[in-house]
């Protein structure tokens, strides 16, 4: 990737985040925007794991769950500041990813998909069953990080929606920047190389097992931070955050937009987050539309919306 491509993508993203509020008819849309950015952040993790390194995970919501419950539990039980709770969640997720990834990343294709799926469901199950700690399936409240009050003291008054919009937007920008850095770096090249041919990657000295584990761990951290942000802005969390459907949503967003491209995957997050909002009138049809979209995009735009469209435009330009 050329350096200019990296800055173009970041600029597009920045403009999107900065200018979108101009078109918001009401404060509610800041909430939707923040949700989009949180999903976008999780999806960037999938881009690193699946788009760069070619590995599948249907269990990444498990890490979002770890992040979310770290934010919910650590302030009360360990007396940590909510921001440190986010860091703790990320560290726990990274450690779990490292341990779980070692055995399961030896697997390929469907086997890897199902093993990761099993991991995610186990996390959701533990969160749902340990009622004493997590409140079980009914969920639990999450303490406010108090950052908004801090800004108020500095003279910056924001509504809750506005605050989380800008906060999540900033996190998304940082996340995208790091992912784009990685893509162009020696490590990123090595990840994309093992995606292309594991045998050839080995013969140039790439430690395939180690690099897959690194990609898995980084993507787990992305999911974990996204989970923490989600928990803190909703002030409430249920085990569904770690559930199978949430894992599927992450992967679908990434693949829909274009799993090989950071900006594409974020676009996938935009579409799939907006879909239920647009379809509220047709709430009964939401699932059908989602299913149909998943099938149609995979058949007709297999690289994902953004890369397929880009290819078509380029083809016309030549």
């Amino acid at each position: 990737m050329r350096p200019s491509a990296k800055w173009t993508q970041l600029l597009i993203l920045f403009l999107l985040i900065a200018l979108l509020p101009l078109f918001f008819p009401s404060g509610y849309y800041f909430r939707v925007g923040a949700l989009i950015f949180v999903n976008g952040l999780a999806v960037i993790g999938i881009v690193i794991l699946t788009g760069y390194a070619g590995q599948i995970s249907l269990g990444h919501a498990g890490f979002a769950g770890i992040g979310a419950y770290a934010s919910a539990l650590a302030p009360g039980h360990l007396g940590l500041h909510p921001l440190l709770a986010v860091v703790l969640g990320a560290l726990v997720s990274a450690a779990v990813a490292w341990l779980v990834g070692r055995p399961i990343l030896r697997l390929k294709g469907y086997y890897l998909a199902v093993a990761s799926l099993g991991f995610g469901i186990l996390v959701a199950m533990v969160l749902g069953n340990e009622r004493a700690l997590t409140g079980g399936p009914d969920g639990m409240a999450v303490p406010d990080p108090g950052l908004r009050d801090l800004l108020k003291d500095l003279g910056l008054k924001l509504t809750g929606g506005e605050f989380w919009y800008w906060c999540c937007g900033l996190c998304l920008l940082i996340g995208a920047w790091a992912a784009l850095n990685l893509q162009a770096s020696p490590t990123g090249r090595a990840l994309r190389a093992l995606h292309g041919s594991e045998v050839a990657a080995r013969t140039v000295g790439i430690d395939v097992a180690r690099l897959k584990l690194q990609a898995f761990t980084i993507s787990a951290v992305y999911a974990s931070v996204a989970g923490s942000l989600l928990a803190m802005q909703n002030r409430f969390i249920t085990p569904d955050v770690a559930g199978f459907m949430h894992s599927i949503e992450m992967v679908t967003m990434a693949v829909l937009g274009g799993v090989g491209s950071v900006i594409g995957a974020i676009f996938g997050a935009v579409i799939l987050t907006l879909l239920p909002q647009v379809l509220t009138v047709f709430a009964d049809y939401e699932q059908m539309v989602l299913g149909a979209v998943m099938i149609l995009v995979m058949i007709f735009l297999p690289e994902g919306l953004i890369p397929s469209l880009a290819r078509k435009l380029r083809g016309r330009g030549e």
């Binding site: 790091a178 850095n181 990685l182 770096s185 020696p186 490590t187 990123g188 090249r189 090595a190 190389a193 140039v204 000295g205 790439i206 690194q214 980084i218």
Partner: peptide, 12 residues
């Protein structure tokens, strides 16, 4: 890769 790869954090 062997000669030019370094710390993951530095790359990110």
């Amino acid at each position: 890769h062997l000669r030019e790869s370094g710390a993951l954090m530095a790359d990110l």
